[in-house]
Design a protein around this nucleic acid. Structure first.
Length: 583
RNA sequence: GCCCCCAUAGCUCAGUGGACAGAGCAACUCCCUUCUAAGGAGUAGGCCGUAGGUUCGAAUCCUACUGGGGGUACCA
């Protein structure tokens, strides 16, 4: 971070001196290490404006910046067709290495979010439906975003907004009363599975008999009116579900600040309707109360109140926006919700602006791609889902087999094996999700989701355990590896071809964290960590650490090992993946 | 019909304005008397869906087309 801003300043200054132009130069890392650590394209951008050949502009800039004698730079060169390439000095890289080891678990933190509040709405499963593989995405990505924003200095509020209100509950109440048996549900270990069956049955029967849809709406209306029987059943549905979700969150190691849901804000829907009335944007249409959008938006109307008088998802969501604003005053609200709800959020955000509840840009839909089967969409209604529980237990089982067969397996206690299997199995599932860009669809594939090697969480966990193991051995041997003694002299010694790639990668972590926050993409952290681990494993295979040629080299390599381990751990923590010390 | 998203190696995906397009899996060759082989080194595999355009420069931006997915007022 320090490097980047210092170089940027120098480029700015040089451009101003040479051409009297103010620029905000783009600095990037060249694709190839041989070009240096940073490069800028300003020369090419400026060339036309200053009527000079881009390479010539680059040469002049390089010369000017050379004149500043920045201590952090070893060389500044112009390269065709007009890049200016910067190579960091070894002293600077080694200084940064010490800095990383001093910062420890705080390495990567930033203050870009200082004084800002972000509310992240994620996970948000539906009551009375099992926690499917689809909700995993919202939970995992949402939690990673939560961690990232916190790490970047934001005041961060995570909210689990349950789908616990709406017509589907009318349907369920009807189904339970008609075909179900409350006693059986109370006695069941997994009442939620029975509820799922009831819901599926309702959908099937409703296809044959449209009268059932009316029954569903009828019971939801009763629920909204506070009918005793409807309320009693609804409460039971919710309790059965919450117990189930709790189990899942515990297994995933996810903790969300607050749990609310549509039912919590449902009674404030009337306020929204009143506000809309006052602003004159609510219109009666076909018996319902709706908001029409300007023609140019090309959006269907948003329904505030159904023709039978019941509230809708839309009005409840608007009420939620208003309530959250009063309570937390967030400058940013992220909705980590599937891409199938894109239109809904477009309408919602626009309506919120029309009602004066939010300004443009304050509400953001982080629309993740859906899980699907190779054959088609997953659907609870059609009973075509995969239960998260099955995926997780299968993943943990496969991990356990691997631990038991591994070299370290014999030396571990049963409890350790259990813990490692869990960390690895769950980590693999999470990473599979996080390492893809959030917008892309995920084709569900057992082999892939349970992949324990290559670009996966276990690869990173393994690399971390290796680093820890080396440090422990070094400590046992000579007590050299506590954090202060990891400090290396800034003026050594040759940094070899195997060590340099790590030094040239580690310092970038804070930049990656900032970028990941900026574009809401935890997968950038995955990409970074995978490359870091790759470089470390190559280094590890090529050079002895503890048995290095001399004391000075050994210190350097231990310091690199410590910094790599720490950075992997910090990154995995951001992703919500645990890093066991042994595996 | 209209709107939105997607198309990169056999498979799954990175890369979203820069310098010869990258990885993992699968295939093939090597490397454990040496710090954890869940590892490493290598070989092979691509007209970045098609056709135009913008730009000094395009997988990346624009337009059209093709193929896939999602959505399209009283489900959420």
């Amino acid at each position: 971070m320090v490097f980047k801003s210092e170089i940027k300043r120098a480029v700015k200054k040089a451009v101003k001196e040479l051409y009297q132009i103010e620029v905000d130069p783009v600095l990037e890392h060249p694709a190839q290490d041989s070009y240096g650590d940073y490069s800028t394209n300003v020369a090419m951008v400026l060339a036309r404006q200053v009527k000079t050949d881009p390479l010539e502009v680059a040469r002049r800039l390089a010369e000017a910046i050379n004149g500043y004698q920045l201590a952090i730079l070893e060389s500044i060169e112009a390269a065709p067709p007009g890049f200016v390439n910067f190579r960091l000095a070894k002293e600077a890289l080694l200084g940064e290495l010490n800095c990383i080891n001093r910062k420890g678990e705080r390495f990567g933190e930033s203050v870009v979010g200082k004084g800002k509040t972000v509310l992240i709405d994620y996970s948000s499963p539906n009551v009375a439906k099992p926690f499917g593989i689809g909700h995993l995405r919202s939970t995992i990505v949402g939690q990673a975003l939560y961690n990232l924003y916190s790490f970047a200095g934001y005041r961060t509020i995570g909210e689990n907004f349950l789908g616990d209100w709406g017509t589907q509950f009318g349907k369920l109440i009807y189904a339970l009363k008609t075909w179900g048996d409350e006693k059986e549900l109370d006695a069941s270990e997994r009442p939620i599975n029975i509820l799922e069956d009831l819901y599926v049955r309702f959908q099937r029967e409703a296809e044959k008999d449209s009268r059932l849809e009316e029954e569903g709406r009828f019971w939801f209306k009763k629920l909204e009116e506070g009918d005793k029987e409807a309320r009693r059943i609804w409460k039971k549905l919710k309790n059965w579900s919450l117990a189930e979700f709790e189990k899942t969150y515990r297994l995933l190691g996810v903790k969300i600040d607050r749990t609310t849901g549509e039912s919590v804000y449902a009674d404030r829907a009337s306020e929204v309707i009143a506000d809309a009335g006052k602003k004159g944007i609510a219109v009666e249409s076909e018996g319902a109360l709706v908001i029409f959008f300007p023609e140019k938006e090309g959006l269907p109307p948003l329904i505030l109140r159904k023709s039978d008088g019941a509230t809708t998802y839309e009005s409840r969501d608007l009420a939620t926006i208003k309530a959250r604003k009063e309570k937390f005053k967030p400058g940013l609200v992220l909705y980590e919700v599937g891409a199938d709800q894109t239109l809904h959020f477009k309408q919602l955000f626009l309506a919120a602006q029309m009602l004066g509840y939010a300004k443009p840009g304050e509400l953001v839909h982080v629309a993740h791609g859906l899980y699907r089967f190779a054959e088609g969409k997953m659907s609870t209604r059609l009973g075509r889902t995969i239960h998260l529980e099955d995926v997780l237990s299968e993943a943990v089982e496969r991990a356990r087999k691997l631990v038991e067969c591994s070299l370290t397996g014999d030396s571990l206690s049963k409890k350790e094996v259990d813990e490692i299997a869990r960390a690895v199995g769950i980590g693999a599932v999470k990473y599979n999700d996080l390492s893809q860009h959030y917008t892309s669809e995920v084709v569900f594939d057992w082999e892939k989701i349970l992949n324990l090697q290559g670009n996966s969480a276990p690869y990173l966990q393994y690399t971390y355990a290796r680093a820890v193991s080396v440090l422990e051995k070094a400590r046992g041997e000579q007590r050299t590896a506590n954090s202060e003694q990891l400090a290396v002299s800034r003026k050594p010694l040759a940094v070899s071809e195997a060590e340099a790639p790590l030094l040239r990668w580690l310092y970038r972590f804070p930049e990656i964290v900032e970028e990941a926050v900026k574009v809401n993409s935890p997968n950038l952290i995955c990409n970074f960590l995978f490359e870091l681990a790759r470089r470390f494993n190559a280094f590890y295979a090529e050079l002895p650490i503890i048995k290095a040629e001399n004391e000075q080299t050994k210190r350097l390599r231990l310091a690199i090992t410590a910094a790599t381990g720490q950075t992997i751990k910090n990154g995995l923590t951001l992703l919500g993946i645990s890093a066991p010390e042994k595996l």
